[in-house]
């Protein structure tokens, strides 16, 4: 399944993580390029009590705008959107965001699968998905959807993950193009923003 070289850069990057992924994100943010050409959506499993302070915490680590996703807002390049606690976050074809308080998926709300799958559908494959540490199976099917839609997929190296279960689930489905160590994640995202980069699946 050789992936064709990318004529245009991706239009969206979605990142999902659960237990053990907060630190990974905090380490990924500072080296991120200041002029990313696409929006980034981060879906983290977290306790609802954590709430909006998480986007403030992230904002201290990057000069990119970090905000909690609001319903019906348009995705803008160079902005990092965080899924709010206790709502699923869906990407619409008109590149707006919808929130949805339906049943938990994989015991999770927000569910990484829901965001990954709707994003893959909305972007028709013109996106990249990254799955981080976690002790839950959420995200693996979503990564598979991105993969089948022609998107680029990556997972945190299970060896570097505090909870390897989640990336391992994706690897077991054979849908992961790139396996990344923690310090490689920001570099990978920056490269996606560079139109000259050509990505191939291994």
């Amino acid at each position: 399944m050789a992936k064709n070289s990318l004529a245009s850069p991706v239009d969206l990057v979605v990142i999902g993580g659960s237990a053990g992924s907060l630190d990974v994100i905090l380490r990924m943010l500072p080296p991120l390029s200041h002029d990313l050409r696409f929006p980034v959506i981060i879906v983290l499993h977290r306790k609802s009590t954590f709430d909006s302070s998480l986007s403030d915490l992230f904002a201290t680590r990057t000069s990119l705008t970090v905000k909690e996703a609001e319903e019906k807002e348009y995705l803008r390049p160079g902005v990092i959107y965080l899924a709010p606690a206790d709502y699923h976050l869906l990407v619409e074809k008109n590149l707006t965001l919808s929130l949805d308080y339906s049943e938990k998926v994989n015991y999770s709300r927000p569910s990484i699968d829901v965001t990954f799958q709707t994003a893959a559908d909305a972007l028709e494959g013109n996106l990249a998905g990254i799955l981080l540490s976690g002790a839950n199976a959420d995200g693996a099917l979503g990564l598979k959807t991105i993969h089948s839609a022609g998107g680029i997929t990556a997972a945190q190296n299970p060896g570097s993950a505090e909870m390897p279960y989640m990336p391992n689930q994706a690897l077991a489905l054979s849908v992961v193009d790139y396996i990344l160590n923690i310090d490689e994640i920001a570099y990978f995202v920056n490269k996606l923003s560079d139109s000259k980069t050509k990505f191939h699946s291994e």
């Binding site: 869906l90 990407v91 619409e92 074809k93 919808s98 949805d100 709707t118 559908d121």
Partner: peptide, 9 residues
Amino acid sequence: YSKASIKRR
């Protein structure tokens, strides 16, 4: 209705 939501349902 929001398209992505309804399609998923």
